[in-house]
Write a protein that binds this DNA or RNA. Structure first.
Length: 668
DNA sequence: GGTTTTCTAAACATAG
DNA sequence: TCTATGTTTAGAAAAC
């Protein structure tokens, strides 16, 4: 029986790991091959226990048995009487009996564990416990489901020959059992997750549930739904057998409609177990009106699979109370709907994780999932910023996102990372020097850890970086070697290809007049001539939408924006399909315009799609600049220092003033 | 198409 | 001689 398998030991080398990894690799159609490994020893078991034990009882029994063997094992460990098993010498740390792994922490106190086992053993034990528990749960449920399906199919085959009759009862019972098992399975797994017994590694959070055999894939749900719906004649018979149901509107209409209509309604029920008569509060607006019902719309019943036409609400209510009263069928249908919801939630979580992974891959900062009810901020928040409650690695404060304002905050989260790093793989010709983007100082302050650890090329020119390195020092001067060190210290990217970038640094130092070589007591040091540095600036940005557009595309935003538009269109978020919305929110978010000129231009577009001035001084000026580089402000004794002055007290009376301010930007 | 900026690569010079 | 530092030139790419 299962008890025997519970006391098996894991052969850690191949099979032990495979056992774990197989959790996420269960083939979809695992009906034949998926359970092959354990099918031999458990195949008969599941069938036997199926009728005798509930899953909970079985698990409990397993745990009890596991505890017995675990005690023996721990006793052996404590007394040093290791078994002469050939496996032990090779994998002592992972060689833990399945039974031990099956134990829940409640059975043996952590103190006992720690006293008996060494930390590696403990760790291995816990991991095995999680993995095996999950695996055996899956196997068990899979067996159960396979059996149920098998019996269901058998019954269906027989039912074709002998329609109607008590056969339907059995069929319905099987279906309900199947549903209950699925529900139990998910609840159990959820409980395990909540208790920490089953930890899901990042990126695979939904895998175990997904890989559960027959779990809740949409096709299965549809099939289930059809089956449940098809069991309606049985339902009728049940009714006539004495359930307290009023009769007898013709079921034929709804029944036939169920076969034609999509099996799953888009009106998702809440997770309520039984309150089927109470009006649901859905997010849909039309369902909030008092004269409507969540399950009634467009003159027809929205009960999944029903679609019975009802002339008015009263008729619908009558229909609801008669056809969808609290009975086995409705309960089963509700369960199916719950499965649908759960599946969708799982799918949502999975997609969210995928998004996170994509963003992580693109070196964006992962964001907290935002409710879809805020589509205006979705793009910007999802692509670029963490939620406003998050703190950034540097601990710098960031302005909170206004819940009401559709405009993405000027500065939140990584500014250039999101856009610039998209094209930072491989050499690019034009860097986003701070004249186009976030001030390098704030960018570096915000994403210091990121650049420090990620092999991502910083989106700034060599000149900007050199200047930043120099300006970061108290005396505003650095030797070449110190500049080198700053590069390597600040950027993982510059820890390789040293010849190339060092040559570029030297080249820039020599080439640009803004870098002044000064003979010092300790040798030659390099300083920055801010006046020269500003002189080399290109023509200022005018803030025209065209320019902004070009700038955005130059930052690599365009492609991503298109992608997100496509993705969002696919996700059928109507508001997000508005180009204005997409461009505005995502553009500002994507750019993370800490930089004043960019922020201003984007913000202007943000307002209404045009470049009309809408900026308030509060929006425009950000004290973050001051906070980030207090030492770099006016205390500079260098002859020409425009640094920080504009950043601290920028006010934007109007567009023209804004334009005139722009060239001076970035003097942080 | 011209200009500007930036990056990359390379050659060369000089000092320690 | 080697290495680090500094200068200069050239080509290419991208954006304007």
């Amino acid at each position: 029986m299962m008890v025997e398998s519970a006391s098996e030991t894991i052969r850690s080398t191949p099979s032990g790991q495979n056992g774990v990894s197989s959790l996420s690799n269960q083939p979809d159609g695992g009906g034949t091959g998926g359970g092959a490994a354990g099918g031999g020893r458990e195949g008969a078991t599941s069938g036997e226990t199926n009728g005798e034990m509930s899953p909970v009882e079985l698990l409990h029994f397993q745990q009890q048995q596991a505890l017995q063997v675990a005690r023996q094992f721990l006793l052996q460990q404590a007394t040093g009487l290791s078994s002469p098993s050939s496996n032990e010498g090779k994998q002592p740390a992972v060689q833990v009996p399945v039974s031990v792994a099956m134990m829940s922490p409640q059975m043996i106190t952590p103190q006992q564990m720690q006293q008996i086992l060494s930390p590696p053993q403990l760790q291995a034990l816990l991991q095995q416990q999680q993995a095996i528990m999950l695996q055996q749960l899956q196997e068990y449920y899979k067996k159960q489901q396979e059996q149920l399906h098998l019996q269901l199919l058998t019954q269906q085959q027989a039912g074709k020959q002998q329609p109607k009759e008590p056969l339907g009862n059995k069929q319905l019972a099987f279906q309900q059992q199947l549903l209950q098992m699925q529900q139990l399975q998910q609840q159990h797994l959820l409980n395990l997750q909540r208790q920490g017994l089953v930890s899901l590694p990042p990126g695979q959070g939904s895998v175990p549930l997904q890989t559960l055999p027959q779990a809740v894939c949409p096709s299965d749900l549809q099939q289930l739904w059809k089956e449940v719906t098809a069991a309606q004649p049985v339902e009728d018979s049940i009714k006539q057998e004495g359930l307290d149901l009023t009769t007898t509107t013709s079921n034929s209409t709804s029944f036939s409609a169920a076969k034609v209509s999509p099996p799953i309604s888009h009106h998702l029920l809440p997770n309520g177990q039984s309150t089927m008569h109470t009006p649901r509060r859905d997010s849909s607006s039309h369902e909030e009106t008092p004269g409507s019902h969540p399950l009634y719309g467009h003159g027809e019943c929205k009960w999944p699979g029903c679609e019975t036409l009802c002339e008015d609400l009263g008729q619908f209510v009558k229909h609801l109370n008669t056809e969808h009263a609290l009975d086995d069928r409705s309960t089963a249908q509700c369960r199916v709907q719950m499965q649908v919801v759960q599946q969708l939630e799982i799918q949502l979580a999975k997609e969210s994780e995928r998004l996170q992974a994509m963003m992580a891959h693109l070196h964006m900062r992962p964001s907290e999932p935002k409710p879809f009810s805020q589509p205006l901020n979705l793009v910007s928040s999802a692509t670029l910023s963490k939620s406003t409650s998050d703190t950034f690695p540097d601990g710098l404060p960031h302005p909170p996102t206004s819940a009401t304002a559709p405009i993405t905050p000027l500065r939140q989260g990584p500014s250039v990372i999101s856009s610039s790093t998209l094209h930072n793989v491989g050499p690019i010709r034009r860097r986003n020097s701070e004249k186009f983007c976030t001030p390098i100082s704030s960018e570096l302050a915000q994403n210091h850890e990121f650049y420090k650890n990620a092999d991502v090329r910083p989106p700034f020119t060599y000149a900007s970086l050199i200047r930043q390195a120099i300006l970061e020092t108290p005396d505003r001067q650095l030797t070449l070697n110190e500049i080198y060190n700053w590069f390597t210290r600040m950027f993982a990217y510059f820890r390789r290809n040293t010849a190339t970038w060092k040559n570029a640094v030297r080249h820039n130092l020599s080439l640009h007049k803004c870098f002044v070589r000064v003979e010092n007591v300790k040798g030659a040091v390099w300083t920055v001539d801010e006046h020269e540095y500003q002189k080399r600036r290109p023509p200022k940005m005018t803030g025209s939408p065209t320019l902004v557009k070009n700038m955005i595309s130059g930052l690599g935003y365009g492609a991503l924006n298109a992608s997100y538009q496509a993705a969002l269109a696919e996700s059928s978020f109507p508001l997000l399909n508005s180009p204005t919305m997409i461009n505005t929110s995502s553009a500002s978010g994507m750019l993370h315009v800490g930089h004043d000129d960019v922020s201003s231009t984007v913000e202007q577009v943000n307002s209404n799609g045009s470049n009309s001035p809408r900026l308030s001084p509060q929006q425009y000026s950000h004290p973050v600049h001051v906070k980030e580089e207090p030492a770099e402000a006016e205390d500079d004794s260098r002859p020409v220092s425009l640094m920080a002055t504009t950043n601290q007290n920028v006010t934007i009376p109007d567009d023209r003033d804004l334009e005139e301010e722009l060239p001076v930007e970035d003097l942080s």
